[in-house]
Design a protein around this nucleic acid. Structure first.
Lengths: 261, 261
DNA sequence: ATTTTTCGGGTACGCCGTACCCAATTACCG
DNA sequence: CGGTAATTGGGTACGGCGTACCCGAAAAAT
């Protein structure tokens, strides 16, 4: 059967100001009282490790505390709640490795790189898709990534809203496809059912559908239509880049003098 | 703080065969025993209503049974488990209203319509994004939709894998953007914090970032860069269609005889 | 009337996030 | 040095979740 990916772990009622403090590390260590036995860093690191390895649902306060060898409620000495923990995990993961050096080449290479890196990011941290990214709490990681992407596409010669539009578009496309791909992986992993086994289970139904005559186009598809060897991500990405190219070329034709790069 | 959207409600270990039986309605009513007081249809309808109104997290077996006025465990007489219920909800919602008549016009109009309809679908049923759609259990609704879309784009003159690629691409793009948009709405609804209030809370941080000199491109963006009035969905959709057009035009140039429509 | 089958649903178990406390620890003040 | 204020660790408890396991009631077949 179909699964959802988690409940509604909303970043909802959380304290943004507190998240920001934690993100930019403004915590003044108080002088009195016992030394903390944990660090925020250790908690976030372990939470990310756990999420990567076993999915976001494995990241419960109980489980996390067990993994860290402390009591559950101790975590609340470092993080106000689970929502803020998610904020911290998000920013941790959004910290780009090859930070701050813009990729070489023109905008097409930059967008291509951005798309591929984003896909990889989602592959390495599949739980990203389950986290509400609206209203990102602006941490060092997220901000740095945006700066880098912007620098790569400024040569497109578009307006500022359009530049953001390009980022939204690529981000949307990549996360959408990543979602499909990850659902596939999850389904296989969690059901223990290979793809072949799955379609075999569907086969009788499939045959009835095909033979019903109600779905001629579907029935007319060749066997390789859903084939494994076709790279859907690359196919869509190139179409998308072509589409951006049409726009950029149009702009350059309009005012040839403003061409950059 | 940041939220996830639910746990890992996996369609994982569920019984596909059983889901299929339920979907295509092969249940033989047994002759003995008391008449059922519920119908599967009522359950699914109510579940969808509940999910639409209050989010997928509101759809718990307890809550659902309360809403239906029965005992919680009674639901398990009709549905093997929550996973199968999700399967049924999925197919219910995927049943296209204007079924089976292909949209008029060429492929571009067809893809455009498909994209807009998919976006509307996700707007009406935001919980769709939280449901693992890999390995769709093939119900009447989903199959009908695919057939319709295929009929609209066959005139592109592409290979079968490419046609599927087009669908995957559009679906990916739309769901990706839909995700962003819905996260926005959710964040507002659940935090009770308007967008303005949110960015105000971020303002001190934002100012520090801009003045730090570490993010020149970001700091150089005009005020309207993130403006509300720019329709990101339409912008990206037109680029995407342009990109497909490049491919189609290329194919027509290669072999002009196979041009259709 | 009895048997067989099905339906309704109560109880219980092990998960979850976290509010509320209190004891132990440490540093400062006198 | 003793006392006090601040801070950390973490136990207990509450209300939620999915669902395994059962048993009593209902209805058709015999």
């Amino acid at each position: 059967m179909t699964s959802t990916n988690g409940g509604d772990t909303q970043r909802t009622g959380s304290d943004i100001t507190r998240s920001l403090e934690l993100l930019w590390g403004e915590g003044e260590r108080p002088t009195r009282g016992p030394k903390p036995g944990l660090t925020l860093d250790r908690i976030v690191t372990e939470a990310v490790r756990l999420a990567d390895a076993e999915g976001l649902s494995a990241v419960s306060m109980r489980r996390l505390s067990t993994e860290l060898g402390t009591g559950t409620m101790s975590l609340y000495r470092y993080v106000p709640g689970k929502g803020e923990l998610l904020d911290l995990m998000l920013d941790r993961v959004n910290t780009v490795s090859g930070e701050s050096q813009p990729p070489p080449g023109g905008w097409r290479e930059a967008v291509e790189a951005y798309a591929r890196e984003t896909l990889v990011l989602h592959r390495e941290h599949p739980w990203l898709l389950q986290v509400n990214q609206a209203r990102p709490v602006l941490g060092p990681g997220s901000v740095g990534g945006l700066e880098r992407t912007l620098s790569g596409i400024e040569s497109m010669g578009l307006t500022d809203p359009e530049l953001i539009g390009v980022i939204v578009m690529v981000e949307g496309y990549v996360t959408g496809v990543a979602r499909t791909q990850l659902h596939e992986v999850e389904a296989t992993k969690k059901s223990g059912l290979s793809d072949e086994a799955f379609w075999e289970a569907q086969y009788p139904t499939l045959e009835r559908i095909m033979n019903s005559g109600r779905y001629p186009h579907l029935a007319g598809l060749s066997d390789d239509a859903f084939g494994r060897d076709f790279d859907h991500f690359e196919f869509g990405l190139q179409r998308l880049l072509d589409g951006l190219d049409v726009l950029v070329a149009g702009r350059e034709a309009e005012n040839p003098d403003t061409r950059k790069a």
